[in-house]
Computed example of a mutant assay.
Amino acid sequence: MSTLERNHVLQEINDLLANHGFETSHIYDRSCFDMMARRKLLLLLLKVLVNIDGINGLQAQEIKKLSHAFLASPLIVGLKSKSEYLEEDVVYERHGIPVIALDTLKNMIIEEEYPEILADRGGYYVQINGEILKEVREDYNLSLKDLADLAHVSRETIYKYEHGIVRACPETAMMLEDILNLKITLSIDLFKVPDHDKKHDIHKEQVNKNIKNSHPQKLIDLGFGVIPTQKTPFDALAKLEQRKITKTADNALITNLERNRNQRTLKRMAISLKDLSLISGSDAVFILDNEKIKESLEGIPVIKSWEMGEMETPSELMKMIKERKN
């Protein structure tokens, strides 16, 4: 898939989402993610790849930490792995991020049909609803061995299915469904926000130490966790540590920190900040030393470093951002 074809896929995804109730962001070709999309409480962080093996661990880590900060669902849409095209309604994975084909995304958005098959090392697998399996087996007065013999697996395997210890191959799952005359496989909820990984806290503490003498230190002193980013339209994310996390990321700040940028560059960045702020539901702010720039830039609040130095509580910062945004 050439750059032109990739852009076509991105546009197709944008149209697909926009036609089904999503608000979509601009497309960010030089970012670790390509676009954001929101529908009510669902926020997607999307990346499109020609070859899904092209993403490395650092890029994936960046996407995952952004997803955690924004309470978003990360998703990679790809064309192929090596020389093999991705199969429809199969979920692949790269560095802990789910990967699907474009047709799979269409099925999810248009038909609300979610994939059940996961491609992993060694083949394809499905997750069986162990509680349903056990309940129906007992309703049929079948022992573990009885059902195992009918499905041509071991008694121990049926036990593991019922207790969620192992996944099943699709063929075995289909055989069990035929025997029991009931659907027992579980769909994969790709729109679920991933569970918080404690590694993020460790990484964040290390980052905060590294930036101790820079502008973000004041945000840290005010009680924000600060996550510097790379290959994004902003310089860092800041999120109140002590506030109870809700289903929205309303306490995440998209910050742009002073890096001796000229006003023209800052204006271009402000357009991206406003776009992503609207989609993510987060506040955007510039933290600058430039005295020539007043209280806002292209609608994005501007806080001067000396103003930050006089603040004692996070509410003072949030109040100033709200005032200058309005």
Rank of each mutant, 00 (worst) to 15 (best):
D201F: 12
L180S: 04
P170E: 13
A173D: 04
P194Q: 10
K204H: 13
L186Y: 14
D201W: 10
L176Y: 05
I184E: 03
F191D: 02
K198F: 13
M175A: 13
I188D: 11
I179Y: 00
A173T: 07
M175V: 15
D195E: 10
I188F: 07
H200P: 14
M174H: 12
K192E: 07
L176A: 01
H203K: 11
K183H: 02
L186E: 10
A168M: 08
D189H: 03
N181V: 05
K192I: 02
D178K: 00
D195H: 02
D201E: 07
K183S: 02
I179C: 03
H196Y: 13
D195V: 09
E177I: 07
D201G: 05
F191L: 06
D189Q: 05
P194N: 09
I184R: 03
M175E: 12
L182V: 08
D178F: 09
K204W: 11
K183P: 06
A168P: 00
I202T: 07
M174T: 06
H203S: 13
E177L: 03
A168W: 08
C169P: 14
P170D: 08
D197K: 05
D178L: 04
L190E: 03
V193K: 14
C169W: 14
D197N: 08
M174G: 13
F191H: 05
L176F: 04
L186A: 12
T185Y: 01
L180H: 00
L190I: 08
M174S: 12
A173F: 02
H203T: 09
A168Y: 06
E177G: 00
I179N: 00
L180Q: 01
A168G: 00
T172E: 01
K192N: 10
T172F: 01
L180Y: 02
L190P: 02
F191E: 06
D189S: 04
K199T: 13
T185P: 04
D201M: 05
D178R: 06
E171S: 12
P194G: 09
D195I: 09
L176R: 02
K199H: 08
E177Q: 00
H196T: 07
I202M: 14
A168F: 11
K198M: 15
D201A: 11
K192P: 06
H196R: 10
L190G: 05
H196G: 11
C169H: 15
P170W: 01
N181D: 12
I188Q: 08
H203C: 05
L180K: 00
A173K: 02
A168V: 03
